[in-house]
Design a protein around this nucleic acid. Structure first.
Lengths: 253, 253
DNA sequence: CGAGTCTGTTGCAGTGTGTGCAACGTCCAT
DNA sequence: ATGGACGTTGCACACACTGCAACAGACTCG
């Protein structure tokens, strides 16, 4: 791989933490100031970083524009979005859409809860693989070999007492999820937050995305949340149908 | 600037148009396939591009995550402050910056008038929603439903004879403000104080903040204050540009 | 079934490109 | 004035990047 590009790209996550000046960037990269300057200049010319009035650098607009374009190209998102909105209107809770990519599961869309108490999440943010309901669905659909290999390399942080403890337990959970066609996370990531998820499938039956409904204990109990499962599954199935071309969003009048 | 990084970054907008394979990337960059491969590999390691099942490359998830993080860290106050100062230096009056948060409008920055007679205000203090010029701008940008709901729950205290009397009048005023893109408060809060305001908009056009110039009657008449409107709007637009990353504060000479 | 042609990938040698250094300019505080 | 901190520039060296050519695998066609 390319050293120069590697260094340049390493600057971006660094700046994502907050603005930094030339010296800080150079130090954290472990290179000379002049080197850092040239990298930053190149990034600047491409609009990836932006120089604010105090001369410090922060991430630039082009990055945001590119990301927006990237998301627009995810057609699953486009199709699913109105369904997420409708689901949120009906139940009021936070609704997420997630996909699997390069050993990560990421939220690619989200409709905020209409309750004042909300869970924190961010579009684009990698999800806790071993506990999140959407992650279980997406990973459960991987080929057997890949699934076992991945389970072996993962870490199993004990966010709470109910977090998945180790690889065998995880593989067992994935098998159950695969079997039943939906998944839950009952306080496995944050003690007080529960989550149910259902798969969106492509024409070939492969799981292409997962959608979920999340709510804190203080708003609804786990049992109450589970009563939403049929509605969630119907919504996910509707998205699946549309994505695989079997049905359309609105029948032509 | 760096050739290697320049080439690597040029790949991103290219992929934003749609997925492309190695050959296409190499051709459009004007480099050998092997060169393009190494660049793509480096981008891939940083999650900036993703290799889909048909081996073609797409923009990657980390790009989305970075952009999202960047947007969270944007600090309007930091960006706007020097502009407020400059505006104050030019006109001498009190300049405010306000945001909408949880059914309240708050001043988050202020540059004091250079005239001896000043209006009283405090950073962090909630603003009188029904009369303040900045509040009108921020509320006028809310979704129709939310705006109507909020207007219904508000109280309409008659600070002065020119205060907004009730919900219908308020909604009408908001519609006008929304239409014209700026707002005034002529003695609606304190009999002797006038105020003009203009919106700061994010990349998506949503109003993220409002800035205002306030002055008591004894210093300038309402008509005189209104002559500052173009300058105020230009300043607000400059902040908008910077906030959404379209422009930079100062290009390095 | 094997020749042909597409892909993507790897090792290598030359050199052009990125590197660190040192010196300079500027700003600010003392 | 004087020192320090910071961004910037020019330069000589070396090394990281480049393009080439050869290889490997998938696929198509006769």
């Amino acid at each position: 791989m390319s050293q120069t590009v590697d260094r340049a790209l390493s600057i971006l996550p660094l700046l994502a933490e907050g603005p930094a000046d030339l010296g800080q960037v150079a130090e954290r990269l472990g290179v000379h100031k002049s080197t850092a300057l040239r990298l930053l200049r190149t990034l600047h010319e491409h609009g990836m970083v932006y120089r604010q009035s105090d001369q410090r650098y922060r991430l630039g607009a082009r990055l945001i524009a590119l990301a927006q374009e990237a998301m627009e190209n995810l057609d699953i998102r486009e199709i699913a979005h109105p369904h997420l909105v409708r689901l949120n209107e009906s139940c009021g809770h936070t609704v997420h859409l997630a996909v699997y990519e390069d050993d990560e599961v990421l939220y690619i869309d989200k409709v905020e809860s209409r309750y004042p108490v909300r869970m924190y999440s961010r579009i684009g943010k990698p999800v806790a693989l071993t506990v999140a309901a959407v992650a279980k669905l997406l990973l459960a659909d991987l080929p057997e070999a890949e699934r076992r290999a991945l389970a072996g390399t993962l870490e199993y942080p004990l966010y709470t007492a109910r977090s998945t403890p180790d690889a065998p337990a995880f593989l067992e959970e994935l098998a159950r999820v695969r079997e039943q066609g939906w998944a839950v996370d009952l306080g496995g990531h944050e003690e007080s937050i529960n989550c149910i998820a259902a798969p969106v499938r492509g024409a070939d039956g492969r799981v292409v995305a997962a959608m979920s409904v999340s709510a804190p204990n203080v708003v609804v109990t786990a049992e109450e949340l589970l009563t939403l499962l049929p509605q969630l599954r119907r919504t996910a199935d509707a998205v699946s149908g549309e994505y695989s071309g079997r049905t359309t969003a609105k029948e032509p009048a």
